[in-house]
Design a protein around this nucleic acid. Structure first.
Lengths: 155, 155
DNA sequence: GCTGAAAACTTGGGACA
DNA sequence: TGTCCCAAGTTTTCAGC
């Protein structure tokens, strides 16, 4: 499960994060190695699960997803059964882009991407009808200042 | 700037989101078309900026990024100059994966990914020394329940 | 705006230092 | 482990429908 990752692996991962569409040769040049060794490292990192999904970042606004909400949830129900149901509800709803269980006062935070405020309300009503929650605060994003999936691997 | 996107475009985008490493032929089959038309559509969508960065999702924990914080920021400074400086600070810090300006009571939310709690503290100290903020609440993630960049394009 | 095919490039793997 | 090289497959362009 744990993989030993050296400097070259880290450089390869940084290149792949930056642009996964590059040819093997470009990556090899960028990291100062050549095709076969780079290819073997990539294969190993993929097998180890360090490299996951290869995807494309789409322009959410251009596709009509104009509202992003961060939802802070407090609950009084802490039983295993409630939690299982809540997790299942989140996994099933594609408008939930992120969900984290938190330490402290607030129990969960969600990032919810929807077409408009009405679509958020529909989501909210569906959620609270499926699972009991104690208190919900929705924070509406006015402007996405920054959004990246890149990890800083160069340090 | 605005592109007309039809059903076929939407299917292509959904396929690319799901797996950007597929061959043109696989995508063409999946959407019920053939290589050349699919290729022309992809090119147009790329030019229009609907398709952005092509990347790879890495396993943050395997790479030693073990702490995620959501940071809620209230400020009393609403001058353009302060805002410019704050935005610049966020853009420059690679540990900030998301930053949104919010409507209402809380002014900004950040998602910050760091190696450990000490690294978060270093980030926090650096941030408050660069820009004046009124009130900061950090929410520590205990568990990433869900994380995706995919938009639900099938509806 | 599609089909089909040709040209250029890329991948994935084998033989060898 | 890395370098060189090849066959198979893929991308990109283009003429014709």
């Amino acid at each position: 499960m744990t993989v030993r990752i050296d400097e070259t692996d880290r450089k390869i991962l940084a290149e792949l994060q930056r642009d996964a569409g590059q040819s093997l040769e470009e990556i090899a040049t960028a990291v100062g190695s050549s095709k076969t060794p780079v290819w073997n490292r990539i294969r190993k990192l993929r097998e180890a699960g360090v490299i996951g999904q290869q995807t494309v970042i789409l322009d959410a606004e251009a596709l009509g997803f104009e509202a992003t909400f961060f939802v802070l949830i407090r609950t009084s129900a802490h039983e295993a059964d409630w939690q299982r149901q809540f997790l299942k509800a989140l996994q099933e709803r594609p408008e939930v882009q992120e969900a984290h269980r938190l330490a402290g006062d607030i129990d969960y935070i969600l990032k919810v991407r929807v077409r408009n405020a009405r679509a958020y309300d529909a989501f909210y009503q569906a959620l609270i009808s499926e699972v009991r929650v104690h208190n919900v605060t929705a924070l509406l994003s006015m402007e996405e200042i920054k959004s990246t999936t890149m990890l800083p691997l160069d340090g």
